[in-house]
């Protein structure tokens, strides 16, 4: 009988880059076409940000849906250009070298590298080259109708509990042995993801994940200044 494959799952935000969905959506919201639109969206984001932080601890998927709702009615063209701009100004220099080293180590150990991101595909398209070598990248996708974003995310929405469900499906489809796989994540909402693998690791954890990691004795790695 052939040996089963193993994988290393990396939640991109918090492990490989510093910024998350809220930063992307806030950038897009403040760069809508009209000034009035920018002000309105910025106001909405200001109200939503604390809710996002609180909600992000328990249901990050819902928090992400809420954050990306600020992209509603933005044109696909604008999102395309702003994604490039966002990468250029905010993301390019925020890739965490230690995270990349973890990826390299996992590769050496023979794991299949799977990156899971809550950022939208338009932004990640520019980041791909900075993330080095990986086998799979799964991220959030905005829904478009008539060239405009509807503000909804296409299922499955990454970030939060959905990731845990997703990797189980992925593992059974690809024949991956989860008991011998590793996962790196940084948020309380990623508990299901980490619990799904045999070797979880909390990287740069937030308050909720740090507490949980301590309770179940998961290793904690910190390198994000």
């Amino acid at each position: 009988m052939s040996e089963k494959k193993t994988a290393a799952f990396f939640r991109v935000e918090g492990t490989l880059i510093k910024r998350g969905a809220l930063s992307v959506s806030a950038y897009f919201a403040t760069n809508a076409q009209k000034f009035s639109d920018r002000l309105f969206r910025l106001g909405a984001m200001a109200v939503a940000a604390p809710v996002y932080s609180i909600l992000g601890q328990s249901d990050r998927g819902l928090a992400n849906r809420m954050a990306y709702f600020s992209c509603r009615h933005l044109s696909e063209d604008r999102i395309f250009v702003l994604a490039e701009e966002y990468y250029d100004t905010m993301l390019k220099d925020s890739v965490l070298d230690r995270g990349l080293e973890l990826m390299k180590r996992a590769r050496k150990e023979g794991h299949r590298i799977v990156l899971i991101s809550e950022t939208i595909s338009e932004v990640l398209e520019h980041l791909k080259d900075d993330l080095g070598s990986y086998d799979e990248l799964v991220c959030n996708r905005l829904e478009y109708r008539n060239g405009k974003a509807t503000g909804k995310l296409v299922d499955p929405v990454m970030g939060g509990h959905e990731c845990g469900r997703w990797i189980k499906e992925y593992a059974s489809k690809e024949g991956i042995d989860l008991a011998n796989s590793v996962a790196y994540a940084a948020h309380g909402g990623d508990l299901l993801l980490l619990a799904s693998v045999g070797h979880p690791c909390a990287t740069n954890p937030d308050f909720a994940l740090r507490r949980a990691a301590r309770e179940v004795d998961w290793p904690v790695v910190e390198y994000c200044a």
Partner: peptide, 9 residues
């Protein structure tokens, strides 16, 4: 919009 976006860039 495409024109404005290119000028922006």
């Amino acid at each position: 919009e495409l024109t404005a976006l290119e000028h922006r860039r």
